[in-house]
Design a binder for these strands. Structure first.
Lengths: 386, 386
DNA sequence: GATATTTTTCTTGTTATGAGAATAATTGAT
DNA sequence: ATCAATTATTCTCATAACAAGAAAAATATC
């Protein structure tokens, strides 16, 4: 383990502390992280010189003594761009260093690998000029629906049909800013940890649904990747023995019961009228379509069973459900809770909160921002934090 | 993160390297761990001065150049004692620093908290004098059937009926050597990593059965403890909806299907002749008692279902089954494999090896040794593995 | 204005890593 | 036998990071 690892680790912890608690003082950072005051002072000075962190005067506290300096992440100091590549769209969001989105948009995408780097480079340039900021683009994070190696090679993205694509190198060549790439589920979990419902929770399980079901295990303050990177692909937990077929080739996975295509398929089978989108499903559920409500209730039961397994294994303080699930909370939650009541270990589940997060609905594409931000303030970027 | 953390981390990594590859050279340690040669040299010197590591001349290699020094863990430098406290017995093993057991024995135990510290102190003294070594006792590791806090307090051990016992302080007061305490399942997993079938495997799932079923998640080279320490209590994964009642108060847990009491109970119910021990069960299975074989096959199916869940969540390279399960491998394995075939994700389970480990049968009580060894080589590491 | 208090920075010391030179120990060629 | 080549380990010195305590800065209260 190298020496600079400590500096980066501490710098990251301090930056995170400021993000989750704006206007915190150095003294409080010391109290909360246990890092020595000299070290905090020195790292804050560095951040301050780089323009990443601002010192704000704080309203008088009526206490004697030198008043604290409120520390905040400078919103003006630079831009982070998040890119999310999906089967049929590419989403862009430009955000300040504190993760607050400035503007976002999506463009149609034919899924072709050829020319995608230039397409994304133009998209990034457009979103940066659109948001009207002059600061540097400090990093671009690219969230991809597939598994990546440590070297930044996308091994396989089923919905795109891509295989063995060296995405980091490819996008780095086309873009001027440092590129960080990652799996979409893991990136979304990171976003929840940085900006969302799981802020500062060191251990949680994240699940999201959309065109598929993904997820991540957030353990000891970091995403667990496992020996082969497949760990945490929670869309393929088996929940129904000999159940529905899944795009992965197996059967009984969580994904075909909870993903938008899976739900639409089932509703279409039962009513002869297949919904065209998740919004469509929600509208029919809102109009009290019994079949749709029933399908969602069943999805909730299956989801609850998957969560129960996870609770019994990890005993996590938090399970966070994002993506389409968040909008469907009213239809899913009762079944989820019924299933957990029945299946989860009582003395464990009592310690677990299950929440539905709106983050990915309200501010989509933040996964990429989280990836880039983690990279920019994190361990693998000695050029940013000297 | 403190500075000395790096030194401890590196020291531990180097010691582990020497343990798993005796007669390794400094040069190879550098190559395998990435630690700088100066650092390796300095840490080896420290170990050498402490007498923990020996430098051995190595047979000539017919190559030019200064010959390497073979490094081994000194077997003479000190003793480690492992203690395993169970419902009705206390087991002791004395081992050299390399983890090789010198002698072991077990004594009957009434489970009473009162006077147990003195009892264990005598037991440790006896096993040390019995093994005939003069070296210092460098550490005593105590493996307990319950959950511990970071401060070394045993929160609750159902089979002993103990609650809120400050075990580290209690045993430290009675013993002369440094005391390390930990959960039995996690300690056993650590032993598999240090001396057993999982040696140097950075990610594996460990399960063992005996009077109960325990386990551990070994992730990224360390036991995962989770937010509350309950993570990895794999005996309480739910495997059968509305299934058998478990000592934990719930129902459908893995434990009542796989533990010795659970198996004995079921066999007794079906035959009217309850086996008195696991050995008894094995003998009847060996004599082709169809009921017993059937009960074991069912246990294997349930176990296979639990393993399938774990495989789909972690995609681990290895799942290790220890304790009574190891002896029952012939009766369990077919059902485990059938269940996994049916339930586990094919592209994941193909990467997972399921093995039965004899370690805890052949050399019992090594869990405590692993606890102590981990503590002794990580200089001022905490004395608890919750 | 003096004093107490609180927050942050500076000074100084210690320890660790890391790059490269130096040393040590051997083989093989001359 | 001696020397060159080779390989393994140790030493030297520079740099980086943390850590403890003194000092400085900024404010409230008396």
């Amino acid at each position: 383990m190298s020496k600079s690892y400590i500096r980066h680790f501490n710098a990251n912890a301090i930056f995170h502390r400021i993000r989750i608690e704006p206007n915190v003082s150095q003294r409080d950072i010391v109290a909360r992280t246990g890092i020595d005051k000299s070290v905090v002072s020195s790292i804050i000075n560095q951040f301050s010189e780089l323009g990443l962190v601002e010192r704000n005067p704080v309203a008088t506290s009526n206490k004697p003594g030198r008043p604290m300096e409120g520390l905040t992440i400078s919103p003006e100091s630079g831009l982070i761009v998040g890119v999310q590549i999906e089967a049929d769209t590419i989403g862009y969001v430009a955000a300040a260093l504190d993760g607050i989105p400035l503007c976002s948009r999506a463009q149609a995408f034919d899924g072709k690998l050829d020319g995608v780097a230039d397409l994304v480079a133009r998209g990034v340039k457009d979103i940066v000029s659109e948001c009207g900021r002059t600061g540097d683009t400090l990093g671009v994070g690219i969230s991809l629906p597939g598994l990546l190696t440590d070297e930044g090679v996308l091994l396989h993205a089923p919905v795109l049909g891509w295989r063995g694509v060296p995405v980091v190198d490819m996008f780095s060549a086309a873009l001027d800013a440092p590129v960080f790439a990652g799996n979409d589920g893991k990136a979304a979990a990171m976003a929840e940890y940085m900006f969302g419902e799981c802020i500062d929770i060191k251990d949680f399980i994240y699940l999201f649904s959309g065109s598929g079901v993904g997820g991540a295990l957030f353990l000891d303050g970091d995403i667990y990747r496992g020996a082969s990177g497949l760990a945490g692909e929670l869309g393929h937990i088996k929940v129904v023995p000999q159940g529905r077929y899944c795009s992965c080739g197996g059967s009984g996975c969580l994904s075909p019961y909870l993903s938008e295509p899976g739900l639409a398929e089932e509703i279409g089978r039962l009513t002869g009228n297949r919904p065209s989108s998740f919004k469509d499903i929600m509208e029919r559920a809102g109009a009290n379509d019994e079949v749709v409500v029933g399908v969602l209730d069943n999805a909730g039961a299956v989801l609850g069973s998957a969560i129960s397994s996870l609770v019994n294994i990890f005993n996590p303080p938090l399970v966070c459900l994002g993506g389409d699930m968040a909008s469907a909370e009213p239809y899913l939650r009762p079944a989820v809770e019924r299933a957990m009541q029945r299946l989860a270990h009582p003395s464990m589940s009592v310690q677990t909160k299950v929440i539905f997060s709106q983050l990915s609905t309200v501010s989509p594409f933040l996964g990429g921002v989280a990836l880039a931000l983690d990279g920019v303030t994190g361990l693998d970027s000695p050029h940013v934090l000297p």
